[in-house]
């Protein structure tokens, strides 16, 4: 038995590509998605892998990051998987890649028009935080019934119980119409989704949903008219121990013998470039 190119059979890839086209036609709208099986469990990045598999061509170069890092087990294994099943080249440099598959971060490096960014998404629908029913959530999206999202934002600013909206997976409004989950990226990454030259595709295999942002789509983080979105600036005094940068998104990675914390850049490519400069 011979493996097909990039593991998936051609019919499945064609079905996924049709879904991608529909998702690009209605930015931010969650399109039902066949999410064929991959050799990892649903919930571990199948959505991203399926999208990548359906898009890959023999000339593509693939970059994969997990939490911004090219070196995690997830990133290394997904690259190895596609190298083996598609024979394509991989890279850790964003500017050399045609497809960038990511989880938990938007690449910090500049993206360009010829690129596709593929996100792995665990929970695609921000409204499911408010309603249990998928049918009711779909009705709310259809009618742009997003009052509850603003109520939660209001609650955060007026309640006695502190933050209720996490600092990641902060919902965005696409082209002023559809509420969308940016996937669990830190909310400061939301600003890079806006007006991005690259195509961005979000695959949620476990939930069977796929959505997309065509190039240069308007993406705004949910905010009040009189209280601008706060992207959450880096905390004072924290710097990456590798490159010294205090502006990038830092991971709390190392504990020193004396019990003090250390921080490193989450985006390993940009960190290495800064360290080499």
């Amino acid at each position: 038995m011979t493996e097909t190119f990039a593991y998936l059979d051609e019919d499945s890839k064609r079905a996924v590509r049709r879904t991608i086209l529909k998702a690009l036609a209605v930015p931010g709208y969650q399109v039902p998605f066949i999410a064929p099986e991959m050799p990892i469990a649903y919930g571990w990045g199948v959505g991203g892998m399926v999208v990548t598999a359906s898009l890959l061509g023999a000339d593509d170069r693939l970059k994969v990051t997990d939490h911004g890092s090219d070196e995690t087990v997830n990133a290394v294994n997904i690259r190895a998987f596609f190298t083996r099943t598609a024979g394509i080249g991989t890279t850790t440099r964003t500017r050399e890649a045609t497809i960038v598959q990511v989880r938990q971060r938007v690449p910090e490096a500049e993206l360009v028009e010829r690129q596709v960014v593929v996100y792995q998404v665990p929970r695609p629908d921000p409204l499911r935080a408010f309603v249990d029913s998928a049918v009711e959530a779909a009705r709310m999206h259809a009618h742009a019934d997003y009052g509850r999202v603003y109520t939660r934002l209001f609650e955060e600013k007026t309640g006695s119980h502190g933050a209720v909206q996490p600092g990641y997976d902060y919902p965005v409004l696409v082209q002023g119409r559809y509420l969308m989950s940016p996937s669990p990226v830190p909310k400061r990454d939301n600003v890079r989704l806006n007006d991005c030259p690259a195509i961005q595709i979000f695959g949620a295999a476990r939930e069977r949903r796929l959505y997309a942002l065509p190039p240069y789509t308007r993406v705004e983080s949910i905010a009040f008219e009189d209280v601008p979105f706060d992207p959450g600036l880096p905390e004072d005094g924290r710097r990456c121990v590798v490159c010294g940068c205090g502006e990038s998104h830092l991971d709390h990675l190392l504990l020193r013998d004396d019990g003090m914390s250390e921080w490193v850049c989450s985006d390993t490519e940009c960190c290495a470039e800064r360290a080499d400069a």
Binding site: D145, G147, R148, Y150, T151, F154, E155, S160, E225
Partner: peptide
């Protein structure tokens, strides 16, 4: 949700997007 959020929710459901007014 807080008492304030409970009172303000009908405003947001009706399209209010101004924090100060709510």
């Amino acid at each position: 949700a807080s008492a304030a959020a409970n009172i303000a929710q009908p405003l947001f459901d009706n399209g209010e997007r101004h924090f100060g007014r709510a």
